[in-house]
Design a protein around this nucleic acid. Structure first.
Lengths: 222, 222, 222, 222
DNA sequence: AATGAATGAGGTTTCATTCAT
DNA sequence: AATGAATGAAACCTCATTCAT
């Protein structure tokens, strides 16, 4: 886990808390609009309506506030992840679909900001950790689910659950990036359907009849 | 395609070509070691053993030489792609495996440099294009293959080939990144096997007996 | 008119105003001594005793502060112009003399600096405008006066007032340059007398008896 | 006089002479188009179709070739000056008019280049001398003529001929600059007429009847 | 007589951060 | 708790000139 380095917000007076929050809000907007490298502290403080000095009473550096923005991002992702029904409430397939849809939706809503996190993660250790935590929030859970279903004989068990979870997680994660950051054109529902079916078939999950139509014909390829 | 903006190297005299090449070599090493942002022109010229001015007789800017390095990277990826056996020489499964192994191997050999391209692609339009071309070099070919096999009834045909190719390409691409850049630990052969099997099963390719063991038992999930 | 691009100095705090002023003062001295091309920002800031960064909090560039110096120059010229007695307080001849003397005096006092403005005006659009405004501050006023006196029948009316004002203005302007910048030796009072008499005679102004002695003798030239 | 620093062109072989000439031609064009500061040696050599090295076998520096261009300019001005009829061939008035017309015409034909000389004269000692020589080519001759006519009683003799010649020369010189370089709009014939009449009246030259109409009415100004 | 690759000093500008008020 | 003026280390890039070929 990435440790919070700042004095906890609860130790701040109400006024201070407001000032700090306005800085985080401003930073969020500016980072989303101008990426990490295109943002300077001047942009943030001017949008927040405070002075440079004030900025440094709440944050050690530009990186520091960026981390804060990243953590907020992480919170949003983990929140939706936790809304996905548990193993006792839905079938595996339903859960895969719900997870994929949630992930793509949050990504879509925060695409600009998430692009910045991706950027930041390429040169900032702290951000890389946050990025990995978001990722692992999904991948670890998948791994556990896959391992469990492997034990239960519901999916192929000839592959390492960790490898599989990482590969399938990468699939969704990167698909979202290509779509929402790089700008390749896709459509949400078709994306969810594709990713979910690929996931299910790759694992060997039995799909409800009708949902996963079989191949029409079979011709052996020499 | 990214258009070459530099005068063609063939127009340069042998001496000039040597100097230019030494700059590209130096840049490649320095970028790999210090990332894009951590590299300055001074580092490159001092390693190449030439003066500042010489750099600017061959390149317009740091970005310009970075693009050159990116193009070299692209060449390497496309070269290995073209070594993968064609549809008449190998089964789909063999070709998927060959492609995955090639991709991971080149990535592994050039991980540092590729990390820099990824980084550059987050803030440089030119690099983004190069990055996308590398990606599309694989994804487009997959899409065509998938579409063809769908027409031939060899794989599931209820999904859009473009979506599928992008999703599965993302899977491999991102898996390599997580492994070789972010540092999650994996092992090459197991990675190839996993990615290939997931790809094959997701598509519905018939695997040779023994290669794709069935699930041991089947228990219906309530 | 050249529009002021800087935030008005009145918006600056007293301390900021002092710092900015010290930069303008330093720039004025350095430009006067080293011309525009011979001056660099380092010279200005070191003389002002501030850091490089401080310079750029008040000015966008070397050109920017140069423009400020030019505007100050303009102010000085227009100030003396406005001290010249109006048409109801003095004869035309007295006013011509006062204007010429004022112009030469300000030029003399600021010769170095004015040379730099002349230099700057040869390659900087902004400076050219300022230079023209200084010029027009005098020429336009002359033109109006000449036109008025033409209407009143006090001077020759067979020439276009605009041409005349420009020509006579050029005479004074360039005389000052040749004298005070190029270094041809002249003496102030004789210069004022010469320019004023030439101006008066060229226009056909009646000079007070004794001031404009007639030619001693008349010999027809074959 | 400005001394020629280069080996005389006559010492060069025909081929060398051609190369040198092509450099001067190229420089003339480039300087006219891009001013002195906007011109680099690269522009000159590329237009002349020779290498950098060749440039430096004929000229010591950029300034050096600029001086050459300036000298050519000087030649053109002095040539037209020498075509003006001598004191025995024409009246003073005719000669003044011929000189003014010539000066304005050469200036008009070479305005771009002359603007560059003016620019160069503001920061290059050599150019300043050339500029002054062009000027003095006219002013000195005027001074002698004026002094002579003063002795002969044909013009006012209460002013120093040197002051007068400089003032009236400045008038024409600067008028041309304002018109042809700074872009104030004037028309050649009216300019010649204005400058000539102003010159004549300032000196007190008797004009042929009809050429210099008197003021229509005379009202004494209190 | 010509080449053109190489030079390198020098200049402008940026911006995260500090600290006196 | 807030201010905002001041900092200064870097970093990029230009271009007149040289010299080995």
């Amino acid at each position: 886990m990435v440790a919070p380095a700042e004095p906890l917000p609860t130790e701040l007076s109400p006024k201070a808390r407001r000032t700090r929050a306005s800085l985080v809000d401003a930073a969020t907007e500016v980072f989303a609009k101008q990426q990490y490298l295109g943002t300077n502290v001047a942009d943030i403080v001017s949008r927040a309506g405070v002075s440079h000095g004030t900025f440094y009473t709440y944050f050690d550096s530009k990186e520091d506030i960026f981390r804060e923005v990243g953590l907020e991002m992480q919170r949003r992702f983990l929140a939706v992840r936790d809304e996905v029904p548990g193993p006792d409430e839905a079938t595996l397939l339903e859960r895969v679909e719900a997870t994929n849809r949630s992930y793509l939706c949050v990504y879509q809503k925060n695409a600009d900001l998430f692009a910045v996190i991706e950027q930041g993660a390429t040169f900032n250790e702290e951000l890389r950790k946050i990025r990995l935590e978001i990722r692992n929030g999904f991948v670890d859970r998948s791994e556990q689910a896959i391992a469990r279903f492997q034990r239960e004989g519901l999916v192929y068990d000839d592959l390492d659950a960790r490898y599989v979870a990482n590969a399938l997680g990468s699939m969704v994660d990167r698909f979202a990036y290509v779509w929402l950051v790089l700008g390749e054109e896709f459509e949400l529902e078709e994306a969810v359907r594709t990713l979910t079916l690929l996931w299910a078939r790759a694992l060997g999950v039995e799909a409800p009849p009708g949902t996963m139509p079989r191949k029409r014909k079979r011709r052996k390829r020499s």
